[in-house]
Design a binder for these strands. Structure first.
Lengths: 134, 134
DNA sequence: GCATATTTTAGAGTTAGTCTAAATATCAAT
DNA sequence: ATTGATATTTAGACTAACTCTAAAATATGC
């Protein structure tokens, strides 16, 4: 009944997808799919688990959100879609975005050593966040 | 009956753990736990799946092997335990080790920007491996 | 308004790994 | 060598985080 809003590239932004995007955009942190599922249910009580996953995939492909995967545990989602790096607290798990300006150079250096044709570089710092440093 | 060989730090290197370590040391690539399970069964037919996982954890904690996790799919294991970086082929999944000499500097720069107390940096280049570049 | 295409849903299925409790093996001291 | 304490292995049940499927609901184009 309600006409679906569209993204600027013409893709369909249904109520469900909009709710999921809204959750990610409103949060400062980097929620997991499950966090998003719970928050999305507040906005759209009937939304199902599978739809949250479908929406996340859709939004990711549309470039509206960014997925962060560390080997451990669940993926986290990030409203920041530009290239950036991550710092992960080894004590409390806090995840912080930052940007290393030398990333482009770095990618070249890495490409030279590995003999790969570079597409992207991902850098993660592990350490203690300011709160966990005492 | 057979006395267990010990690592130089005195930890027990049982037949099972030795088999798992042997598999990893003999391979040039970066096998998954399942690859290791299959190869270990050739050496020690009765070895169980759980034992391979237990052994991998043990060997990792003893610093004898290195675990590599990317968000996608299963962990890979690496006989190279010194700090190093990885290049991952976006087409065929090939994983190659290399070392970036500027890693120490990089860690400092990342620590400065994120305000974290640094422990380690992990860099991954995604791109096309030499074979997949045509 | 009807046919076609897209999206959502519930729930089953999958993957990779962890946990548990019983069985077995090793060690250290008689 | 036997005994008891400790460590390790095993099979299989269990878990977390997704992914898939097929049917139902919804939207779009004519």
């Amino acid at each position: 009944m309600a006409k679906p809003i569209r993204t600027d590239t013409g893709a369909r932004l249904t109520r469900q997808r909009e709710a999921v995007l809204g959750v990610i955009r409103e949060r400062e942190d980097h929620p997991t799919a499950n966090d998003i599922f719970e928050a999305a249910r507040q906005r759209l009580p009937g939304i199902s688990y599978a739809t949250v996953y479908n929406s996340l995939r859709f939004l990711k492909e549309a470039g509206l959100v960014h997925e962060i995967k560390f080997g451990d545990s669940a993926s986290r989602y990030d409203r920041e879609t530009d290239r950036h790096d991550h710092a992960l607290c080894s004590q409390c798990g806090k995840l912080v975005d930052f940007d290393l300006p030398q990333a482009a150079e770095l990618m070249k250096a890495a490409a030279r050593r590995s003999k790969f044709k570079p597409e992207s570089v991902h850098l993660t710092l592990k350490g203690l966040c300011p709160d966990c440093c005492e």
